[in-house]
Nucleic acid binder design. Sequence first.
DNA 1: GCCTGCTCTGGGAGCGGTTTCAGAAACCGC
DNA 2: GCGGTTTCTGAAACCGCTCCCAGAGCAGGC
Lengths: 341, 341
Amino acid sequence: MPRPTIQDVARAAGVSKSTVSRVLNGVEDYVDANTRRQVEKAIAELEYRPNALARSLITKRSLAVGLLISDVANAFYHPVIHGVEQIAIEAGYDTFLCNTNYEVERGLHFIRSLMSKNVDGVLIMSSSVSDEWIAELARHNVPTVALDWKPNISEGPLGVIAVDFAAGIQQAVEHLVNLGHCRFVHVAGPLNLPTSLLRYEAFLRALAWHDIPAADVALLEGNLQFEGGQRVLTRLLELSPRPTAVFAANDLTALGLISGARERGLRIPDDLSVVGLDDIALADQSSPPLTTIRLPKLEIGRSAMQMLLTLMHSDGAACPVHEALVKSSFVERQSTAAPRS
Amino acid sequence: MPRPTIQDVARAAGVSKSTVSRVLNGVEDYVDANTRRQVEKAIAELEYRPNALARSLITKRSLAVGLLISDVANAFYHPVIHGVEQIAIEAGYDTFLCNTNYEVERGLHFIRSLMSKNVDGVLIMSSSVSDEWIAELARHNVPTVALDWKPNISEGPLGVIAVDFAAGIQQAVEHLVNLGHCRFVHVAGPLNLPTSLLRYEAFLRALAWHDIPAADVALLEGNLQFEGGQRVLTRLLELSPRPTAVFAANDLTALGLISGARERGLRIPDDLSVVGLDDIALADQSSPPLTTIRLPKLEIGRSAMQMLLTLMHSDGAACPVHEALVKSSFVERQSTAAPRS
DNA sequence: GCCTGCTCTGGGAGCGGTTTCAGAAACCGC
DNA sequence: GCGGTTTCTGAAACCGCTCCCAGAGCAGGC
């Protein structure tokens, strides 16, 4: 048998559906205590649960938000997801998690799908973002919060969680320089992503501060994934002169590099010092435990969702782009050491 | 401005909304080639996208399914999720991923939420399932596929992906016995879960086959998570006589055991042989690489979604519970060795 | 006794789509 | 030229809910 509707409840309680709706939404609205009890009884007996679709069709709010990430398998996202869910559940929102699989096209597909489902807001945590996504959302006035993305758009209910990589990178560089390293390589994320360049530049700036010229810093392109790190190690070994320290755009890449190094018989950190970025849960379980730059992942998720809530509730009021800044910090473990020579 | 509706498109194209609806659904329905072109033009110009809510309110299908898992951070689920998504996207379905966080209550919350959103089906991959969930779904006739769960319910559109643990466990036991082990311990999942007992019993059976009595097999309870493995190691060390080989209910537990062992200065595999179950991606990156029993995770995801599609399409036809069996297999790595004595 | 105001309830329009039904127009064979 | 198909289109009902509006009943003030 099909689910009971509000009409069925009304019939069972001997009232009109308007009245049922009133007790359902339980606002400060006149409804007699007796009637209320009757309706509640009918609801319980029929195990009635309102149809969220019909409801949000008319109210224009779905109590749901979309969360776009690159890939669930990327451990960086796990605390982020938890953070988002903590705040979301607390506020009565559901989250739709979407794996873009690092593909811009697929992300767009999800954004359209989410919009057609009338989500109240969207969180974009995927590393490969496209301006087109944001534009599509802004055009239709969907509150949006993006992680680590400088939007070209200034209109629309848009928030940004900016990451201050500089502080952590600065400390990491200091650590490496103190150990005696002078030939560096950075394994970046896809170079078409603004964030990839930002991290690279922050690295260069920190090195320049220690009088190490950009010419002594090689740049290789990875894909932010484990196997990308494994693959790129081959190219790293072909560099001449051979770098003694590598800074990877994220921990997954760093762990891939370590794995690739082990396969080729290299010893970490003796033959090569490796620094990651993110501080995923695996980082201190790997061998050797990974020296890395920590991002406050849970906080990123929490404050992103918090910001989205603000955006969604202050609706209409054309506000400037919201922005929050989160800090990075350095974590020393055992994947870095003084160079051998 | 708000999203355009079908009415706007109709106006722009100079037709009625019935006609727009017809070209939208593009079925074998009479609509003049010229009118069709005009409507399509209007759709493109307005960037019209149908409201999925309104649509599914009347059609009773949402082209969406729910996917319940215990925790995104559990790597076992990553290939499963990928598998589900592969098939789902192909068939035009969206998936709503829900983290039950190993909590039965939270799972029920999600199931209700999914049902109120009119999902067409639900996949239950969460390890902590409750019969109440399945009952709730069955009562409302929602097609459901569960992983590794013997349902008490025989009515309703229900499918089950059963895992044949026996084969893999058998091989693992053979491996351990051949190495010379004779004192075993099993670290199970929560003992209120049927699947925990099934794995334990399969382990006992395999050992009995080699004339090892159940009395020589200790049982400890974990929680299927990493830190559960770490914690339980303390209790493992208190066992007397000290076991030489441990079989964990899943890889996460096994890795937690290894981590706990390292902290206490134990050497794996010399002081203790460890066998996991799942073969998650981490398993061959850990140190030492984990000997484990592989589950075909991608296939589990794919065939679960495939089965769900079948269930959803053969709607109404009261069929018996569908069932598919997937096999497990043994993977030897370096966390097992002959006992020292 | 009448008006005002407050409390409570039901009717009904409408959210944005789909689908049934009926009717208009064109075509066809005789 | 006329009945009968076939092709095309629009009107209207409906999905399950919310919410506006009007009205009923009752208390209180004059």
